Computed example of a mutant assay.
Amino acid sequence: MPKKSLAEISREMAGIDIAILSTHTENGEIANRPMSNNGDVAYDGTSYYFTYEQGRTVSDIQRNPKVALGFSSEAGLFSKGVYVAVEGTAELIRDKAAFQQHWTSDLDKWFDNGIDTPGIVLIKVKAKRITYWTGREEGEVVI
């Protein structure tokens, strides 16, 4: 069976907003937390997440930028569902122009002053390897 391309995986992921972001803590443990793609779900191997500067997520990434993301969609009447695991590198962005590019009105409930909210940071995750499962099919894309 032919393996899927990144574009095909992206189509299967369309609409998945929530990912589990995994980082390495200072004592070497793995920490996981749900993060929203902010409705920016056209996946090309890079994804973006807003958080607060003082959060452990930021200090974890500053110490070790190697992260993982987990995505899943439920099986439905016409789909098998998809499970995607991403290994990548995170970058912390503090540029308001970049904030504006990835901002949606849904974020206003978490960040009172929009892109001007003090202490926000944008996490950019660039995938290096993507593993997927759809029903019995599985595969991997290395970027």
Rank of each mutant, 00 (worst) to 15 (best):
N113E: 15
E87L: 11
I93H: 00
I61S: 09
F111V: 08
A68P: 07
P2G: 00
R94L: 00
T89C: 01
N38F: 01
H102D: 06
D106P: 01
I30H: 02
A90T: 04
G28M: 09
Y43Q: 09
T46W: 00
D116T: 03
T23L: 05
R63W: 02
D116F: 02
D40P: 00
I123A: 08
T131C: 01
V121Q: 12
I61T: 07
W103A: 07
N37Q: 04
A14F: 05
N27H: 13
R136Q: 00
N64F: 04
I93W: 01
G135E: 03
G45Q: 06
K128Y: 00
A85G: 15
A31E: 11
F71P: 05
E53M: 11
G81V: 09
Y52E: 06
I9W: 02
E74H: 09
M35Y: 06
S22K: 04
N37W: 01
K126N: 04
G114S: 12
A14K: 12
T25V: 01
T104P: 10
I130H: 02
V84E: 10
M1E: 08
V121N: 13
I120A: 12
V84R: 05
K66S: 13
L92M: 02
R136D: 04
A85L: 14
A85S: 15
K3Q: 13
G114Q: 08
T57L: 08
T23I: 02
D44S: 14
G70E: 13
N64M: 02
Y43C: 11
I18Y: 12
I16V: 13
V121T: 15
I123T: 09
W110V: 06
Q62K: 15
A75I: 05
Y48A: 05
N32I: 03
F99P: 06
T134G: 00
G70I: 07
I93K: 00
I9T: 01
S73I: 04
L69I: 06
I16C: 10
G139V: 10
P34S: 06
S10V: 06
F111W: 09
K128H: 05
I123P: 07
Q54R: 08
P2I: 03
R63L: 11
P2S: 09
V84M: 12
L122M: 11
E53C: 03
K3H: 05
I93D: 00
D106M: 13
D40N: 15
I30L: 12
H24A: 12
L21I: 02
S73K: 13
V142H: 14
T57G: 03
Y52K: 10
S72T: 11
I18H: 07
K4W: 08
S36D: 04
N32E: 11
R63E: 10
R56I: 02
T57K: 14
I120R: 10
H24S: 13
A42P: 03
I9V: 10
I143R: 03
S5Q: 01
W103T: 04
G88N: 11
P65N: 14
R56E: 11
P34F: 07
I120V: 12
G45T: 09
P34L: 06
T131D: 11
I61P: 05
S105C: 05
T117C: 04
L77Q: 14
A42K: 15
I9L: 03
N64T: 03
D17G: 06
V58K: 04
R33H: 07
K3N: 09
Y49L: 00
G114R: 13
K80L: 14
W133N: 01
S36G: 11
G81C: 09
G114E: 09
R63Y: 02
I16G: 02
S73D: 03
S47W: 01
A19N: 04
